[in-house]
Design a protein around this nucleic acid. Structure first.
Length: 579
RNA sequence: CUGCCCGUAGCUCAACCGGAUAGAGCAACGGCCUUCUAAGCCGUAGGUUACAGGUUCGAUUCCUGUCGGGCAGGCCA
């Protein structure tokens, strides 16, 4: 069985060998072998001569001559030429060009996998939305990006763990619980004015109704007790809310935990289902509360204390993050003795690092960027290498309806949920739209455009190519095993050459996507591959009288089909047989 | 005020850790279905890569500055 080697890697090795002869003393010359933009410049080009020029101060074309002269013989290379400023252009044999089809045939759904990640453990933490209401379209982008990124990293040879950090310990959860309780009270005609900064959504009323159905009037208390000692809402809105929470805890006792946990589990379960339907799955759900229960928060803060990075001021305990480049120091324990969110986050990241990942990747909304220095600072203070933490910032998705931006706030209840979006445009379009641009680019999600099932939607373009291939193969009377006999040397026209090149670039694309944390390059690759195919489809017929030629072409488009399946799977998009 | 991200065709975006003549889609114009799916293809037109410097053999890419847009800067999460 032939062992396939990527021509690019092969050429790289050839050049390295030649380089060791031309400049034996130079060990760290960086150069690349890559696809030239123009086919006339060969199958691959190498810039090694220009790189050498920098060090040796010699004419690049002369250096290129020397490198070419020192190149070992290769059965894959037909000829080399020196062009432009000193590029070495390689022209491959037909066999070298079409071997990729054999590779696809043998690898099947594993085609495109590479060893770039060397089985190193990485963690991707994403979404991690507060379980205080339905996921909205902003979360959707993080979900689609994180899931695709994780899939790409896995395909590139990493061992990937996908994690969701559950913020189940904070004030936001208390607000949700008290909101649910107030709606519950109103079901009994007990009218406590609902605070503006409570959770307004209908799902809160839903939960209230469920509590009533299950437990009747068990949690009913009179309005004056609910409001006792609570600051007026119009004077101190936050204090008002905190007062309501305090009274709820006092009046309900242990029952408070029931309502709190009920609301938490309802929302968490809802989010989990929503994400699962979206094709987004997690390996681990990590509870913030467990950090407190197990003493990890205390331990992390103690460790910082021992390492001499904390001090007291105004009754609060501060972390001296300015020592690590943060713009100001941060409170980890408040005057009232409660730990801040930052404190549990320190413990969480300490725990992540202790789990032994080569890389820890956090997918965050871009509005959290100011948070990076303090987290990295805390890791440094705990004697970890902050370089192991990568933050992938994802810009928010603006929602556009009727040409106007829709405001999105969970509390206002006016958001469009991820579930609604999926229902309107479908999972495939949603997943694809979300990753179609670089994560750090703003995304205007035009609902009207996405909803209109027009041909503007690029996902159809790719799926259509796949469906067309399936249709052709359906018409064909042979079986897949026949492809092994295909005479691929018959593939010679420019469309076929373009597709062979494209197929060969798939693994490089995966590598780039993994290195840059950029699943969008896979999306663009698939668009290009689909374009190559559609063009071919219109120029040639596959089911022709010449049986040999027909078989070769079918083998080629079957390889395209497989590559599309593999690529679409990374993006969480289906590959339908017919449309 | 300070920090981070962004600025590429009329619009929405690409451009492989710096490479040769910066590419697609939409919109505009002109063609292609008696054939394996026209949700497709072919062609025309569209650019001082915001601006000014710098580094380099070579800059959309790296650095500095200016302008413009977005987002952050809590003992909230």
């Amino acid at each position: 069985m032939t062992d396939f080697q990527d021509p690019k890697d092969h050429l790289f090795a050839l050049v390295q060998t030649a380089l060791s002869q031309v400049a034996p003393d130079l060990t760290d010359v960086s150069f690349v072998v890559e696809r030239p933009k123009q086919a006339a410049h060969g199958d691959y080009a190498c810039n090694v001569a220009m790189q050498l020029t920098r060090v040796l101060r010699r004419n690049p074309r002369e250096l290129a001559q020397a490198v070419v002269a020192a190149l070992p013989e290769s059965s894959l290379v037909v000829k080399t030429e020196i062009a432009g400023a000193g590029f070495i252009n390689f022209f491959l044999t037909p066999a070298a060009r079409y071997q990729v089809v054999r590779q696809v045939q043998q690898m099947g759904e594993r085609f495109g996998r590479c060893e770039y990640g060397a089985r190193k453990k990485v963690q991707v933490e994403f979404v991690s939305a507060n379980p205080t209401g339905p996921l909205h379209v902003g979360h959707g982008r993080g979900a689609a990006y994180g899931a695709s990124l994780a899939a790409v990293l896995d395909f590139a040879g990493y061992k990937v763990q996908k994690e969701y950090y559950v913020n189940d310990a904070g004030r936001q959860m208390d607000i949700l619980a008290v909101s649910t309780w107030l709606r519950y009270l109103s079901l009994f005609g007990i009218d406590v004015p609902f605070p503006k900064n409570g959770y307004q959504g209908d799902y809160v009323r839903e939960m209230a109704k469920q509590v009533k159905d299950a437990h009747g009037d068990r949690y009913v208390h009179q309005p004056w007790t609910v409001l006792e000692g609570v600051p007026a809402a119009d004077e101190d809105a936050e204090g008002h809310l905190d007062g309501l929470i305090a009274n709820a805890k006092k009046l309900l006792g242990d029952d408070w935990h029931y309502i709190h946990n009920f609301a938490l589990n309802e929302q968490l379960g809802d989010g989990r289902n929503d994400l699962a339907e979206f094709g987004v799955h997690f390996d681990n759900w990590y509870s913030e509360r467990s950090l407190f229960d197990s003493g990890l928060v205390e331990r992390a803060i103690d460790q910082l204390e021992v390492n001499g990075h904390l001090y007291m001021q105004d009754g609060a305990k501060w972390f001296r993050s300015t020592r690590f480049g943060d713009e100001k120091d941060r409170v980890v324990q408040r005057e009232n003795g409660l730990y801040t969110y930052f404190a549990s986050d320190i413990a969480y990241h300490q725990n992540k690092f202790e789990r032994g990942f080569h890389k820890v990747i956090n997918v965050w909304g871009a509005d959290h960027h100011g948070y990076i220095p303090r987290v990295k600072g805390a890791l440094t203070a705990l004697n970890f290498d902050p370089e192991k933490l990568d933050i992938a910032l994802v810009q928010f998705a603006n929602l556009i309806r009727d040409g106007k931006q829709v405001s999105m706030s969970t509390r206002s209840g006016e958001f469009v949920t991820l579930r609604e979006l999926r229902g309107e445009v479908g999972n495939d379009a949603a997943r694809f739209f979300y990753v179609l641009r670089k994560s750090e680019q703003h995304l205007d999600f035009d609902l009207d455009l996405a909803k209109s099932q027009s041909n503007d939607n690029p996902v159809y373009y790719i799926q259509y190519a796949h469906a067309r291939i399936c249709r052709v193969l359906e018409e064909w009377t042979g079986v897949a095993s026949d492809f092994a006999e295909a005479r691929l040397e018959l593939l010679g026209n420019e469309h076929e050459a373009a597709i062979l090149r494209r197929l060969c670039d798939f693994s490089v694309t995966i590598e780039n996507a993994a290195r840059e944390y950029a699943p969008h390059v896979v999306a663009f690759y698939l668009k290009d591959l689909a374009a190559d195919f559609h063009s071919y489809y219109n120029a040639e017929r596959f089911l022709v009288d010449d049986v040999e030629l027909s078989l070769a072409r079918l083998a080629l488009i079957d390889a395209v089909r497989q590559t599309m399946v593999n690529g679409l799977r990374l993006l969480g998009v289906s590959a339908p047989d017919k449309m």
